[in-house]
Design a protein around this nucleic acid. Structure first.
Length: 345
DNA sequence: TGTATTTGACCTAC
DNA sequence: GTAGGTCAAATACA
């Protein structure tokens, strides 16, 4: 956690080992690519931190600010290191869940039906055959700040959503609104999101995304190739201005024993929008860290480090999922250039 | 008239 | 039993 801590970084060889391990630990192509992506992403973050660290050392950032930055970098580095090791252990451990074991919306025995065709035992099943509670779907949260209370900006992230419900939530000051993709029926797009105004801050909205966009809109809103250009991707602010997309925080399973341990290993992702290749993300904002962004924790993550760096307030968070399934939104890897961004692979 | 939103009821997970 | 998530009829709006 401090700048003077022993260097626990895995060597590049170790990272490669993690990669190899991830590969060998999968027989399903989906899991394969997901794990590839996880390792790739982690390695990329690590590399970024290394570069930053080197840059700081070279420029000799002065005194207090520099010290603080170094501490922050050190903390980030350690977190990523541990995350990589976790990724390794997840797929390499004998008892690690095998590919295909996590629940899969696509693989549900009840899938293939239509809304009308939902059987009587699960009347509330949606078009994918999922019952009303979509516990098994990948989900992740973001926080969006608006300029005024009147703003409905959080509802407009570039995708077309239809509101299908609203619910008062116990203990919450404001009701939670439920949205699903407008093209749910026409294109069988099962993405949905929940929007809730934060209790303490009426300008802040917690947005939880569920499932993946598979609609054509997703394709048209795929991330620009900013990975090459270095540009920051932002969801299209088609509506009211002043939206400030904070972060994507994958919401992992909260009741898995493994999670408890992993929660002690904070890390943050530097991922691209996962909408590409019909994966989750649904146009959700990416988690690159633009200057001035504020990363905040989801309910299931444990803040580890909060530091103030000029223009950047970062709260490193961790999240996980015992079976990695909930990370599908960010791990699927149909995009080949995803790998190209890694120096390790 | 077609589409979107509202809202009470229903269903499921915990 | 309760809370959260979804459905679907009613309603509003363009």
């Amino acid at each position: 956690m401090n700048a003077g801590s022993p260097d626990i970084r895995p060597s590049e060889g170790e990272v490669r080992g993690a990669w190899k391990c991830l590969m060998e630990g999968s027989s399903s192509s989906d899991r394969y690519t997901e794990r590839c992506a996880l390792a790739t992403e982690l390695a990329q973050v690590l590399d970024t931190v290394r570069q930053l660290e080197a840059q700081m050392g070279a420029k000799g950032i002065a005194d207090d600010g520099g010290e603080r930055c170094r501490a922050l970098v050190s903390s980030m580095r350690s977190s990523v290191d541990r995350s990589i090791h976790i990724a390794m252990s997840l797929c390499c451990a004998p008892g690690a869940p095998g590919p295909g074991s996590p629940p899969s919306a696509e693989g549900s025995p009840r899938s293939g039906g239509s809304d009308q065709g939902a059987d009587s035992r699960c009347r509330g099943a949606n078009a994918a055959g999922q019952c009303k509670k979509r516990k098994a779907l990948p989900k992740w949260s973001t926080q969006v700040r608006v300029n005024t209370v009147q703003d409905v900006g959080p509802l407009d992230d570039g995708f077309s959503w239809r509101k299908y419900g609203q619910k008062d939530i116990l203990g919450a000051k404001y009701p939670r609104a439920y949205f699903r993709c407008t093209y749910r029926h026409t294109q069988s797009c099962h993405a949905s999101k929940q929007v809730q105004r934060a209790d303490g801050d009426p300008l802040l909205f917690d947005v939880v995304y569920h499932g993946n966009h598979t609609c054509a809109q997703c394709n048209s809103l795929q991330r620009p190739r900013h990975a090459a250009s270095g540009e920051q991707w932002q969801p299209q602010p088609a509506g009211a201005g002043g939206q400030e997309v904070s972060s994507i925080i994958p919401v992992g399973l909260k009741d898995e024993g493994l999670v408890k341990g992993l929660l002690e290993t904070p890390f943050s992702f530097q991922s691209k929008p996962a909408c590409a290749a019909d994966t989750g993300g649904g146009g959700a904002p990416n988690s690159d860290f633009p200057a001035g962004c504020t990363l905040t924790a989801s309910p299931f993550v444990s803040p580890a480090v909060v530091r103030n760096v000029p223009d950047v307030e970062v709260e490193l968070t961790s999240t996980t999922d015992s079976q990695m399934a909930d990370m599908e939104f960010m791990l699927q890897l149909a995009d080949a250039d995803f790998l190209d961004n890694s120096r390790y692979f």
